[in-house]
Design a protein around this nucleic acid. Sequence first.
DNA 1: CTAAAACCTGACGCCAACGTCAGAGGCAAG
DNA 2: CTTGCCTCTGACGTTGGCGTCAGGTTTTAG
Lengths: 125, 125
Amino acid sequence: MTVTEAAAERLIRIGEVARGAGVSVRAVRYYEQQGLLISERSPSGQRLYRQDAVTLVRFFQQMFAAGLSSRRITELLPCWDAGHTDAEQRAMLRAERDRIQAKVDDLQAALDRLDEVIAITDTHP
Amino acid sequence: MTVTEAAAERLIRIGEVARGAGVSVRAVRYYEQQGLLISERSPSGQRLYRQDAVTLVRFFQQMFAAGLSSRRITELLPCWDAGHTDAEQRAMLRAERDRIQAKVDDLQAALDRLDEVIAITDTHP
DNA sequence: CTAAAACCTGACGCCAACGTCAGAGGCAAG
DNA sequence: CTTGCCTCTGACGTTGGCGTCAGGTTTTAG
């Protein structure tokens, strides 16, 4: 692989991104609209993404599952991309972390209550 | 306390339920509309709840936080109320339990990723 | 008695992450 | 060439757990 080949990375279309990350094409368009993804356009107007977009979309899914909004994710993306962080971003990171931890605790408590009932209903069928 | 006093339990109005459980009055009405709560009515039409409605509402909040829908909760309420469970209900209980467990795992993974970044950004300020 | 606080029934609004439909191009294979 | 799949823009629909406003009755405190 030459340097010029490395520079001219292979670009992929939206369908490949979607299949690769296990989401819908619509979702990928939505992410781009929200500023989470950027794409070049082919002469005919089709979106062309870098290959790491797949990894990125998986990461978005994980953050969504953790309750972060797309807006919050865009605000925190520089922390990954560039390693750049200011005080505000570090504060947001910790706030989100604490929120998720609290959520984990809540879920664990709910889980315990369900397990109680399951134990009871299994011994009284 | 006599038997008749015990039978004629003190009933509370919707505001007391809401304050007691830390939710809005609107939320309590919504729960009733969804079949999660039952109430008698005063001659003038005001809702009168049993005192344990407060505990019940707190429980609903916990289940909502765990991702159960009001519909699902109504389907599982007999498991608490009467201790009655059929095969279908036991299956739902386990399904919800597994779903919550999976969610906990997802959140934990997200938490770990955030902690990674926090560690990095704290050492590279 | 009266004024404030609490309650009632509708009914519309909200938000976020998409789903879905319509109508119109674009692109490789046989 | 045409068939069939992929992609485009734009825009409305969905879901759930409420918030909120309107306009009216009831209860309670002083």
